[in-house]
Design a protein around this nucleic acid. Structure first.
Lengths: 204, 204
DNA sequence: GTCTATAAGCCGATAGAC
DNA sequence: GTCTATCGGCTTATAGAC
């Protein structure tokens, strides 16, 4: 069908993710996005109407995966299982949606001026739920009395950092890109600090 | 002495930190910086020559504190003491140099295009030293066999997040700004995860 | 040293040919 | 539906009066 349309939109979206991630919204030019997509600049406007619109679509593309990452919190489970699954999924998002993750981080850093109120509310509601969940585990004696807010902030930060600060991580490790075993080591380090650090009880 | 000059430069630097942190380098206008500083725009160019120059000065202002934060690693000490001091200093920088921290994070996220090679080398050398230090503790049996790279990345991320993602933290906690006890709780949560999570041995 | 008024150029956006 | 050629606004930067 409208295969050309779909293909071009996809090409532009991918190119835009990369450009926005690399330089940020204001610093990147639509002509660079078009060039990277291998299409003339007016096509970008034809399909997306404006630079801001295109940016918003890139931003939206990461919200769904981020909300889904909290799925383990939305069904009953032992704290250890839930936290492990959550951390692994967060790390996977940083790896598989690296560009969009970085765009999202940038957006949040600047006060989320382009994120719809609805999306903001969804994300905040999910965060509140996760925090309440952790608090209930603490109240049940299933883990130590840590502040659930700060625990969650640490998990977010430690997992997001692999997308956001990939340049720094490359500089320090000397590896241009991390491989499976590096991501595995990252996940295990974070999981260890959370599980052991917060004395999360394993099911009997 | 040249009190007017010094005072004006200071006003502009402060205003620039805030503007750059809020909107990013490309998105912010020199006229807004001038307005925020309460000075006419040409003064900005008179004192700093160019927008990029001004940006670089803001960036430089945070490098020294960041390097100094690693001081505990540069003198002999028990791992627990060193890590505790390091985390507390990192958190303090996020709080006291919130704007410059955010500007720095933004710069790193985009591959540090404005950071001098010299500064980059200094920061990388210090990171390498800290990692080697952690590795030696592991080799001495003073802490568990965690990957020192990932441990450091987690500490950086968890402490930086209070500057970088202050908007998100406000949204989740419902507090416009965190107070002493919030930062204390943040530090304790991170310290706990690192010390307990990595089984850091306390001195006998 | 300070500031008003202006130049110069870049980039988002589109008109209009194909 | 696609792209060339161009406009128009906005922002950095400065010339030159005070």
């Amino acid at each position: 069908m409208s295969s050309i349309r779909e293909r071009n939109k996809e090409l532009i979206l991918r190119a835009a993710s990369e450009e926005f991630a690399e330089k940020g919204f204001a610093a990147c030019k639509t002509s660079d996005i078009a060039d990277r997509a291998g299409l003339p600049k007016p096509n970008v406007y034809y399909y997306f109407k404006s630079k801001e619109n295109l940016y918003r679509e890139v931003l939206e593309s990461i919200v769904e995966p981020l909300l889904e990452a909290s799925a383990p919190f939305n069904q009953p489970g032992h704290p250890g299982e839930v936290l492990r699954a959550y951390i692994r999924t967060k790390i996977r998002i940083s790896r598989e949606h690296a560009c969009a993750s970085k765009v999202f981080a940038n957006e949040i850093m600047h006060g989320a001026p382009h994120l719809s109120a609805e999306r903001t509310a969804q994300l905040n509601a999910q965060a509140a739920h996760n925090i309440a969940c952790i608090q209930s585990w603490i109240d049940q004696g299933l883990m130590a009395r840590v502040d659930p807010n700060h625990l969650l902030f640490s998990i977010w930060a430690a997992t997001q950092t692999y997308a956001d600060f990939d340049w720094q991580i490359s500089a320090v490790t000397g590896k241009a890109t991390l491989d499976d075993s590096d991501y595995e080591a990252a996940a295990e380090t974070i999981i260890r600090m959370v599980i052991k650090g917060c004395e999360v009880q394993e099911p009997a």
